[in-house]
């Protein structure tokens, strides 16, 4: 079993950006949405368009991300649906005072009983769900490309240059270094146990029995790594690890495009704050026309 990183070098503007500016942009967007608690689709939709634009600029091949998107869509619809079912309440309170007439109703009863309730779909609820999905997708769209577009070799230095300590940053690099080795150990162990008649694809029994049957794979790899660690510690001490502030041979530098990009992130953050706290715009919003239409 070989570790295959999702990362490929691509000649795109996104990959030419400094990784720090991308993480800072991500932080700006997350904080911009959550601190002022923005629920107005008039603000969310433009943000959504910006994130989609950035996603397209990353030029990730569709076949690579198909499965991920499927998973994300299922999760988001499940969560949004569940949220609607359980309460119909999100952050904003306007849904509670939902006085709009139902568009249609879905009876949810356990068959043959009177247990259950009628779920009334109203225009407010529809808009709420739409806003919520768009809000979640904006985040996912920013989060998904990271493994595909950020070289694993620069995670350590990225964190270092964002103020994280030498040791913690190096832990990141060391983890990347060991991953393929441990994955190979795991595949050797799988082979070794299969040669003893162990069959992975036909684990029998209930959950407990099946989990117990993983011990022949988990125990050897984990225990060997505890032994390996002792030698790695010696090897690193012998090369003066942790004795002085480190030089990091890889360099990161901001280019003008990075300042523009971070500026965009900051602008989004500030815009959202200003709208909410200066103009009072940002609460959940339904176009009055739609409400009027629904209420006949």
């Amino acid at each position: 079993m070989l570790v295959s990183w999702k990362y490929r070098p691509r000649n795109t503007i996104i990959q030419r950006l400094d990784p720090r500016s991308r993480l800072i942009f991500l932080a700006c967007v997350i904080l911009g949405i959550t601190i002022p608690n923005i629920w107005d689709i008039r603000l969310i939709f433009p943000l959504f368009l910006i994130t989609v634009g950035l996603y397209l600029l990353a030029r990730i091949e569709w076949k690579d991300v198909r499965r991920t998107w499927l998973f994300i869509f299922i999760l988001i619809f499940f969560i949004v649906g569940l949220n609607g079912l359980l309460s119909g309440r999100g952050g904003p309170t306007s849904v509670m005072q939902d006085t709009s007439a139902p568009l249609f109703s879905i009876p949810l009863f356990i068959p043959g009983t009177t247990w259950g309730f009628v779920l009334k779909i109203t225009i407010v609820r529809v808009f709420f769900a739409m806003t919520q999905i768009m809000r979640m997708l904006s985040m996912a769209i920013l989060a998904i490309p990271i493994p595909y577009t950020m070289d694993p070799n620069i995670y350590g230095i990225t964190f270092r240059r964002m103020g994280v300590s030498d040791k913690v940053s190096f832990t990141m690099d060391l983890a990347f270094r060991f991953l393929p080795t441990l994955a190979r150990d795991l595949s050797i162990t799988i082979d070794a146990q299969r040669a003893r008649g162990y069959e992975m694809d036909s684990l029998k029994g209930g959950i407990v029995a099946r989990l117990r049957r993983l011990a022949p794979l988990i125990v050897p790899v984990t225990m060997q790594s505890t032994v390996t660690g002792e030698e790695v510690i010696d090897a690193m001490d012998l090369r003066a690890f942790g004795t002085a502030p480190r030089t990091w041979i890889r360099a990161l530098s901001f280019a003008p495009r990075d300042y523009i990009f971070m500026g965009l992130g900051l602008a989004i953050f500030i815009t959202f704050l200003v709208f909410k706290f200066v103009f009072g715009v940002g609460e959940f919003w339904v176009p009055p026309e739609a409400l009027a239409w629904a209420n006949g």
Binding site: V3, A175, R177, L182, S225, T226, M236, G242
Partner: peptide
């Protein structure tokens, strides 16, 4: 120290593997 760095990294890599 070095010990925590090494086992932090190995633990993380195992989690990934």
């Amino acid at each position: 120290g070095t010990r925590q760095v090494v086992y932090g990294a190995i633990g993380a890599a195992l989690y990934g593997a």
